[in-house]
Amino acid sequence: MAKVLPITQQITRENRENEKPPVNIRLEDVEDCFIYDRRGVASPFKKLYQDRKSIIIFVRNFLCYTCKEYVEDLSKIPREALEDAGIRLVVIGQSTHHHIESFCSLTGYPYEIYVDPERCIYKKLGMKREEIFTDSASPSPHVKSGVLVGHMKSMWRAMTSRAFDFQGDPHQQGGSLIVGPGSEVYFAHFDMNRLDHMPINWLLQLAGVQQTLDFSDKPKIIIV
């Protein structure tokens, strides 16, 4: 049986036919960068993917309304779907660890979450700062709020939080990886802008999760 080679290309949602050149992701460059849990305990990045395949999502900042709504949809993934496929799901932000607890409470996210407050991993992997928008970009299936309402919600959260800050660099973009076990990279996507998250079902399918989920907020019609 022929060996299936890992996918290590940057794929955008705008036009999958015009694939970009391969992204050179070297996990060796970031494996010893420290990430911090909700208690502020540090551990090396490599601990997330050494023993199993992992989907790792890097978000812009915890105050970003698009990241909030994306992570809300991540929280809907059934635990058994991940366990059956042997997949670890991890979210990484770039605020201080003090904001993790409130972000999880806000989004209902039940899986692993860490922060990279110095943006060590973001920088070394080459994730973008600032935003690039194109006319052909598809709307994110995970962002339900419009720009104005979304910004108002983000500002309100900033004003009512204990520390009035952006909970991360507001110019930093995120991305997603499918890696491990070991240092093998199967997939990489770096967001071009705040709406350029990889659709969750695509990530799950690429990682080997069999279940397809419905993230639509439209009412479900039940035929009886």
Rank of each mutant, 00 (worst) to 15 (best):
A81I: 03
I221L: 15
W202M: 15
M159N: 08
C120N: 11
V115N: 10
H142C: 14
S183W: 02
Q9P: 00
Y70D: 00
E69R: 05
D217V: 13
Q211P: 00
K46C: 06
M152W: 01
L106G: 00
K144C: 02
N15Y: 12
G175K: 04
P219S: 13
T12P: 00
P181A: 11
I200V: 02
V90P: 09
Y49Q: 14
S136M: 10
C104K: 15
G182P: 06
D37Y: 05
M152F: 09
I221N: 12
L106F: 06
Y70V: 01
M155S: 07
N24I: 12
K68N: 14
Y122D: 08
Y111H: 10
T8E: 06
S176Y: 03
L48S: 08
L148N: 09
P170L: 12
F34M: 15
I7Q: 02
R60Y: 14
I132P: 00
I121T: 12
V71R: 03
N15M: 01
F166P: 10
E14V: 02
I113M: 15
E72V: 08
A207H: 05
S136K: 14
G93E: 06
S102P: 01
S95E: 10
V179I: 12
Q210N: 14
V185Y: 00
Y122W: 11
V179N: 02
D165T: 07
L177C: 05
Y70H: 15
G40F: 04
R79K: 14
G108P: 03
P141T: 04
I56A: 11
V41S: 09
P139S: 15
Q50M: 12
R38Q: 14
Y111W: 04
E184N: 00
D29N: 13
N193I: 07
V41M: 13
Q173W: 01
G86R: 02
K20F: 07
L48R: 01
S216T: 13
L5I: 11
E101N: 03
Y122Q: 09
Y114D: 04
M1N: 11
S176L: 05
Q211N: 01
K76S: 06
K47R: 11
Y36S: 15
I55P: 04
D73N: 14
R119G: 01
N201A: 08
D116C: 15
V224K: 08
V71K: 14
Y122I: 12
P78V: 05
A85T: 10
Y36I: 10
A158V: 07
S43E: 02
E101S: 14
D84H: 02
E130M: 14
A137Y: 10
I121A: 10
R129T: 02
C33M: 13
F103N: 03
G86H: 02
H97C: 13
E131Y: 12
A207T: 00
D214Y: 03
